[in-house]
Structures are given as C-alpha cells and as structure tokens.
Nucleic acid binder design. Structure first.
Length: 154
DNA sequence: GCCAACGTTGGC
DNA sequence: GCCAACGTTGGC
C-alpha cells in the first residue's frame, strides 16, 4: 500500500494510537476492490513511501479491520470528498492497518529493480500507479529478508 | 518541472 | 460504445 510520507508516513503510523490507522482516501476502483473484496483480517501488507526521496518500501503492516465505507467521501471539508458517493450506497471503502515492523534498511525502487526475484513485481512495472497492489508471497518474503524488519514489540 | 502511463468524463 | 480531452500519479 502506497502513501506519501509528506501526508502520512510509516512514522506517523508508529505514533498513532495502537499503531493503527484507517486507510481512507483511496479513490480508485481497482484499489478499492482489492480492499473491499480481497483483504482479510491478518493479511500482511508492505508499506511504501511514494513521491519520496527516494521512494522506498519502508515496512510491513497487517489488516486489522476488514473493509467498511470510507466516510471521508461524505465530508465536504475532506480533500477526498466525493459528491457522487451516496451514504445509502457507499462507493468507497477502506480497511484498517496496524504497523507490524519498520525496515532497518528502507528499500529504494532503484535497489529493488536489481533483484532478479522481483523483476515481475507490480510495483516495479513502468507506469505502475495503483496505490493498493497485490504482492506475491515470494516477493513479500524476499523484500522482508532484505529490509531487516524491526518488530515493534519484541 | 517534465512527461509517460493511466483513469475519468462527456460529446457524439 | 468510441474516443478525444482532460486530470492524476509518481518516477526521474
């Protein structure tokens, strides 16, 4: 899952109550479908900082609440307000994620591109813009082995 | 700041 | 349903 660190970084997540946040503001149908239809409680996710210097995979989190309507779509003052989302038939959904580990070695895109096991990874595809993507188990494992995750409570 | 790669909108 | 115009994402 991508986030712009200027807006909400993994360090903000670490500081949040119970290291948990709702993943609001996603306004892309495919990304929404991943969250609404595919994500299950306990699923693990990679946290990625986009538009950063450099852009990096910075840690892991878990799904701590499965999908529910994204109420920020109905909030006039929210930057992601969507007049076409009807509270009686919500258009946008979100999940909650809880921080699992921060990488002691953040993994920049340029570095990930050099890893043969990751050549097919969606994140590394040219023009890959989707903010919620699926990651293959082997890719997840490889990235964790490179990132040296530092668990919160251990 | 540039621009490729999308996704969305709306006229027809 | 097609597609041009426009808007957004995000690496570089």
């Amino acid at each position: 899952m991508k986030t712009e660190p200027d807006v909400f970084s993994i360090y903000d997540l670490a500081k949040a109550e119970k290291s948990t946040t709702c993943w609001d503001g996603v306004r892309n149908y495919q990304a929404r479908n991943y969250m609404r239809d595919l994500m299950k409680f306990g699923d693990r996710v990679l946290v990625y900082h986009s538009n950063a210097e450099p852009s990096c995979v910075v840690g892991t989190a878990t799904i701590s609440n499965t999908s529910y309507p994204d109420h920020t779509a109905w909030d006039l003052k929210d930057p992601h307000f969507d007049p076409k989302s009807d509270p009686n038939s919500p258009r946008w959904f979100m999940v909650d994620i809880t921080l699992e580990a921060i990488f002691q070695v953040p993994l920049a895109l340029s570095e990930l591109r050099l890893i043969p096991e990751l050549f097919k990874m969606e994140l590394l595809r040219k023009g890959s813009r989707l903010s919620v993507q699926s990651v293959r188990a082997e890719e997840f494992k490889k990235i964790c082995s490179l990132g040296k995750p530092k668990r919160l409570n251990s």
